[in-house]
């Protein structure tokens, strides 16, 4: 028995961790399903939805635009160097476009929005939880999932593809600017090559990814904020967890989606 004791303790620790993980995942899935169901059931709160659309979509434009611009530029420089190693500098326009549209537009845009929006949602809902505003909503016959969570989920899921699309365009323009001014490309050739090689599937897959990332961003912000611990520390922790979990889930989802959309 004495020899077995440490093993038992070890196994119990693993068991506890697994149970916590399963319980947490289950609770999150239920939270998500319930909230999504409220998107489709009245009463709706259009004013709240509009406010979130502005906040998540419109005010994220500068962040996403600047990220795309610099990424597109850097991408052009890198591919020029890389392509130069086997005399393929002419691939710059098409690879910049495909790279931006399929991968970097949605992923980097998503990560930036995760930092901005997940954090602010978690902080806001966390503060509302701590100051009993969420309980107050319930006592005023308003379901917090319907009033707070559903509009945020919907707004982020719809806004993110639009943001990603704008990011795509700006990113390609960034590549174009660098290509034309620094790498000696002919402007019309650059644009023609971009158009020729870019397909609807490239763009579409990126937008699907962006919608999923938008959902993840709002879900993690809401989930962490809704279940925030007490006090300033609780809200701080919720905010951090929201950004970290949203970012990691975005990267994981990106791989899974890429695998699903473009099987090797």
């Amino acid at each position: 028995m004495t020899i077995l004791a440490p093993i038992q303790i070890f196994l119990a620790a693993i068991g506890r961790a697994v149970l916590t993980l399963c319980g947490g995942t289950g609770a999150l899935v239920l939270f998500a399903l319930r909230s999504v169901s409220h998107v489709f059931r009245p009463p709706w709160y259009p004013l709240e939805f509009g406010r979130q659309l502005m906040r998540i979509g419109w005010f994220s434009l500068p962040v996403v635009g600047l990220t795309a611009l610099f990424t597109g530029g850097a991408l052009a420089l890198q591919i020029y160097t890389g392509g130069g190693r086997f005399n393929a500098e002419s691939v710059v326009p098409s690879i910049v476009a495909i790279g931006m549209v399929r991968e970097l537009g949605p992923v980097l845009g998503g990560l930036m929005v995760a930092g901005r929006v997940s954090a602010s949602i978690a902080a806001e809902l966390g503060t509302m939880r701590v100051t009993e505003q969420i309980d107050a909503l319930t006592t005023l016959s308003t379901n917090p999932l319907k009033y707070l969570v559903a509009p945020r989920l919907l707004a982020a899921t719809l806004a993110m593809p639009v943001l990603a699309f704008i990011g795509d365009v700006i990113g390609i323009m960034g590549g174009f600017a660098v290509g034309v001014t620094r790498l000696g490309f002919n402007p019309s050739t650059y644009i023609n090559t971009t158009w020729t090689y870019l397909t609807n599937d490239d763009v579409g897959s990126g937008l699907i990814k962006a919608a999923v990332f938008g959902f993840i961003i709002a879900l993690m912000g809401c989930w962490q904020g809704y279940n925030s611990g007490r006090g300033a520390q609780g809200v701080g922790k919720a905010t951090t967890n929201a950004v970290v979990s949203a970012s990691i889930l975005i990267l994981a989802a990106n791989y899974i989606l890429t695998e699903a959309l473009f099987p090797a």
């Binding site: 009463p43 009993e132 107050a136 005023l140």
Partner: peptide, 26 residues
């Protein structure tokens, strides 16, 4: 219900808080 800290919605004005139930739901 009157909450301990008031639990007023800080994104809304005073009257919108008071009228919340009348402006939302059924």
């Amino acid at each position: 219900m009157l909450f301990q800290g008031g639990a007023l919605f800080d994104s809304m004005t005073v009257w919108e808080n008071v009228a919340f139930r009348m402006r939302h739901g059924h």
